[in-house]
Write a protein that binds this DNA or RNA. Structure first.
Lengths: 336, 336
DNA sequence: CTGTTAGCGCTTTCAT
DNA sequence: ATGAAAGCGCTAACAG
């Protein structure tokens, strides 16, 4: 930077300001001078050292987003929306994936925080105590997504997974189904999955339908193959079942394919519903009834919430914690 | 750090060394003292400032990996393998996604480089000139994966996509199919897809089969829905076709479902083959014949190559560029 | 094995 | 609008 300054005939400070003009909107250098400086940087192949900048200014220029999985069209779309919003503001998005494990999430949060992100986006509302306190201590804005945690860390953009599953049960009930089962994972590692099961169970009770028809199969997130195995077990255990709500479209799809393999008509023998409106649910034959969420919208809203919180913090105040509800709806398709 | 040092009654430097003992394997402080220091850090709630550490030491402690998509089980598995290897060495993996666009990749590389990663993992062998020169200038190890670029940047872990597609064509030919088509995207944005098409075309020529039966449909990576539309167009255009190789399992699956919707028997009316051995190919009914690659193996090999290059660089020498070939094989299933 | 000294490249702060 | 000086928190290098 000193070399560039020398070449243009100004001080390091002026170069620094010219380079940061784009980030801050304050006008500092004359546009002509600024262009000369930028040109000189280009000519000399100079790029600012972000590590020194971060170190000195306490602003890292990045935001961390933690995803449970890198193989999920829902989270992928959310990330897309997040990227749009955050990069438009000149912040970089750095991703990590937790593999649906809170311990991994904790490790990642710790690692990310040492790099001083300006904000953190989490997926879900379930975190270790250590993770919570680290985030609190860091004093940076946090947004939890895809969930409606009972005790949010700060901001939230999501919906009630329990309510969504309940709505699906009521929908199937309205279509005339009466012996409605649920397929999900064995543990509560995927807390959104556990919430959906809870919502299912409650709706069943409220409607006075025969309950307890729950197949738990495999470590979440359960796979297509596990969905297939689960539906076989389901029909063996409760032969009278006429519909099944699956914890996700992936297991729903696995169940659907297994039914076809065994010659069980869907929805004639059994109706199948999924969750998430994954691509596979739209493409399958028959197309799978599912709960559709505006995934990109979650990302955008989370990004905007985070940005305004970051802005607030820079201006010295902390905006109050906000919760943005994202609507969902049932996509009624051929599988029910 | 000074406070911790004061409390333990040593110098800052000793604290620094104790904290870095875990990373470097050199033994510096006595274990007892080290434990006391670590305890003091814990008690005082002190965590090292990674940004200062990075700034001072020129070691960021992270490796950047760029993925084309966050919704692809192949890349997800590769990342899993990469994570294992890289984190075992105390390096953090920071992810970015390019959306299959070289311009986005270039922007990401620029942004990552300002944070001084110790190495970079790229997907594919196609990059902008600017990206290549930035990476070269950065002087850090680079590994390209999932491809066999003609002019690699440095290290490579991959296989020939063209050859893999050719092997699939020969496999179908051996099974008796003669009028074999190809479904892929319209542009060369997905270069691995373009390579596969090239391999297909060459194998067709070498076998003396009727050629030109290529449907290009939509911007890559082409979706399930587009695979479905493409197969309809294919059968309309060349009604004599008896098999189709799809650029990926996703489009193969879309084609398969569309055939079922229209009552075209698979593989009776038309055989369908995919690429990648995605979960959906194993779960579909009928199961989809595909090219299976050891995805996790690619990630592990890439990570190991990168680590040894980083080690070499720390010891002051640059290990010669290496290319690791990853084997692939045909999974013959029910769709052909 | 431990301490001392001197920065790393930038921005903050305070002048002008 | 621009410049000069003073660090940010840590580690490299060297000395003991």
């Amino acid at each position: 930077m000193a070399d560039v300054a020398a070449r243009v005939g100004v001080s390091k400070m002026t170069v620094s300001r010219a380079l940061n003009r784009s980030v801050e909107s304050e006008r500092v250098t004359s546009e002509a001078l600024r262009q000369r400086i930028l040109q000189a940087c280009e000519d000399m192949g100079y790029v600012i050292d972000q590590t020194a900048r971060t170190f000195s200014s306490k602003r890292s220029g990045f935001v961390a987003a933690l995803l449970p999985s890198l193989n999920n069209s829902n989270f992928s779309e959310t990330t897309q929306g997040l990227t749009e919003v955050v990069e438009a503001r000149g912040l970089q998005l750095l991703l990590g994936y937790t593999d649906y494990r809170v311990e991994t999430e904790e490790r990642l949060i710790r690692a990310m925080l040492t790099r001083r992100p300006e904000g953190v986006i989490l997926t879900g509302g379930s975190h270790t105590t250590a993770a919570r306190s680290m985030l609190r201590a860091a004093g940076i804005p946090v947004v939890e997504t895809w969930d409606l945690p009972a005790k949010p860390i700060e901001h939230v953009v999501g919906f009630s997974n329990a309510e969504a599953a309940a709505v699906m049960v009521r929908h199937l009930h309205a279509k005339g189904y009466r012996r409605i089962a649920f397929i999900g994972g064995t543990s509560n590692r995927d807390t959104r999955g556990a919430d959906r099961r809870r919502g299912y169970a409650q709706a069943i009770r409220e409607l006075g339908l025969p309950d307890g028809r729950v197949i738990s199969f495999g470590q979440p997130p359960i796979s297509m193959a596990q969905g297939g195995e689960a539906v076989v077990q389901l029909i063996r255990q409760w032969p009278d079942v006429d519909a099944v709500v699956c914890v996700s479209d992936l297991s729903a799809f696995g169940a659907l394919m297994e039914c076809q393999r065994r010659g069980w008509d869907v929805p004639g023998r059994i109706a199948i519903a999924g969750f998430g409106d994954f691509e596979v649910a739209r493409a399958a034959h028959p197309r799978i009834t599912t709960v559709a969420v505006n995934c990109t919208g979650i990302g955008r809203a989370a990004g905007e919430l985070l940005l305004s919180a970051i802005d607030g913090l820079r201006d010295g105040h902390r905006p109050p914690a906000e919760t943005v509800l994202i609507p969902f709806h049932i996509e009624q398709r051929e599988s029910s």
